[in-house]
Amino acid sequence: MDSINATAATLLGFLHTGEASGYELVATAEEVVGGFWTVTRSQVYRELAALAQRGLVTAGETGPRARVRYRITDEGREAFALWIATPPGAEQIRYPLLLTIAFGGHIDRARLQCYVDHHRTEHQHRLKAYQARLGTGATDAYQRATLAFGVRYEEAVIAWMDDLPAILGPVETTSDGGPDAAPRKQGG
């Protein structure tokens, strides 16, 4: 049996709990894994079609609003079991703010701080959402473990943001006393 990709495996994992439409799977993905794994609406429908073609899911009748409910097959369970038994690859941080900060010497510090403040708000909202979901007790131990990681991750990012002024040091000033907004040249 050919291997499946992580997005397909995610959908098969969700379908283990029962049938669902593509719309429902998008919502579940956003709620359960959206904080650390991107699954777009177009990916969900593309993967469902491919999974159906491979016999890993079956499509039911078209229901209200042209929604089709999908059910995992025995072959789908087997493909998921093979995927989950394969060690996961190493993570790669893809954090746009971090990339901007890597080149932060090329923009005004106040603008950079605005970017950080915007991201801080997003991370604070995620932290509260993870804490709220943990507080409901409605998840299984594996989901709680994932949520606990999310809480610690968000706390670490917020703490790092708090430390940024000390890490970056004082704002350099120009000869007129204003902040240095000019890009810094590398080398000599």
Rank of each mutant, 00 (worst) to 15 (best):
S3N: 03
S3C: 04
I4S: 00
N5W: 11
A6E: 10
T7M: 04
T7D: 05
A8D: 09
A9V: 02
L12I: 10
G13K: 02
T17C: 02
T17K: 02
T17L: 05
G18Y: 09
A20K: 07
G22E: 08
E24Y: 03
V26N: 05
V26R: 04
T28S: 11
A29S: 06
V32N: 14
V33N: 06
G34Y: 09
G35L: 12
G35D: 06
F36R: 11
W37F: 14
T40H: 08
T40F: 13
V44R: 01
R46W: 14
R46I: 13
A50T: 14
A50I: 10
R54K: 04
G55F: 03
G55W: 05
V57K: 02
V57F: 01
T58M: 00
G63L: 01
G63S: 08
A66D: 13
V68W: 03
T73G: 00
D74E: 13
E75I: 00
G76V: 03
E78I: 06
A79E: 02
A79I: 06
F80D: 09
F80C: 01
A81M: 08
L82D: 04
P87I: 05
G89P: 02
Q92F: 14
I93M: 11
R94W: 07
R94F: 11
Y95W: 03
P96T: 10
L97I: 04
L98N: 06
F103R: 06
G105S: 12
H106T: 07
A110G: 11
L112R: 08
C114M: 10
C114T: 08
V116L: 14
V116Y: 11
H125I: 01
H125G: 00
R126S: 05
L127D: 11
L127E: 01
Y130I: 09
Q131K: 04
R133L: 12
R133F: 03
L134N: 00
T136H: 03
T139K: 11
A141W: 05
Y142S: 04
R144V: 06
F149Y: 13
F149P: 07
R152C: 09
E154S: 15
D162V: 03
D163F: 02
G169A: 12
V171T: 13
G178T: 13
P179M: 10
D180H: 06
A181S: 12
A181N: 12
A182L: 08
P183R: 02
K185N: 13
K185S: 07
G187I: 01
